[in-house]
Design a protein around this nucleic acid. Structure first.
Length: 176
DNA sequence: TAGGCCATCTGGTCCT
DNA sequence: AGGACCAGATGGCCTA
């Protein structure tokens, strides 16, 4: 608790009538109560804003979840899983693009769409191969920085993704 | 019951 | 001054 405001000499004034001191004490108690309610209402407002802020953050996280390749009936990814998965997912997509550009002759009709995962691959597999050395279709793979290792954040929520077969839904509108 | 995840409150700090 | 952001604390809920 913060220390009391340094009052100006509690009940000092030798010789002051008792009644005067009493009145001063009441006034002081009133201001303190007022200050308390003011602080309280500020705190309540701040709590409200903070709650709102976290709701927005969670909404953004939900949007992120919705563009990640999981089955709807999968258990909901936790916050940290969502972030880590998104990280790896982005890495895998960019790696796919990079490899496609390096290895394939640019088809005339190529529209820049990300190549789908190889047949039979599921999220677990592409996630597990999301390492700097794994997708080595080309020899000189000096690609983007690798996804985090299992030590830091290469965590793949494999359980909730096992069985993923289709193409992930493309991101819609950019996150706001 | 322990551990993980989450929402909320709270006080501190930074920014406008 | 007030709002945004952040991190720590706390308590509830759920699951192994």
């Amino acid at each position: 608790m913060p220390a009391e405001a340094p009052g100006s000499g509690d009940g000092a004034e030798p010789g002051a009538p008792r009644e005067r001191r009493r009145r001063r004490g009441r006034a002081r108690a009133r201001t303190e109560a007022l200050l308390h309610t003011l602080k309280r209402s500020r705190r309540v407002k701040a709590n409200d804003r903070e709650r709102n802020r976290m709701h927005h953050l969670n909404a953004a996280l939900d949007e992120l979840r919705s563009v990640l390749p999981t089955f709807p009936d999968d258990t909901k990814l936790t916050k940290i899983e969502t972030l880590r998965f998104a990280y790896n997912y982005i890495w895998a997509l960019s790696e796919t693009l990079r490899l496609a550009e390096q290895c394939l002759p640019p088809p005339p009709a190529f529209r820049g769409a990300a190549a789908p995962p190889s047949p039979g691959s599921d999220a677990g597999s592409w996630l597990s191969s999301a390492s700097p050395s794994a997708p080595s279709l080309c020899a000189s793979a000096s690609g983007p920085s690798s996804p985090a290792t299992s030590e830091d954040c290469a965590y793949a929520p494999a359980d909730s993704l096992r069985g993923f077969r289709g193409l992930p839904a493309g991101p819609g509108a950019p996150l706001r």
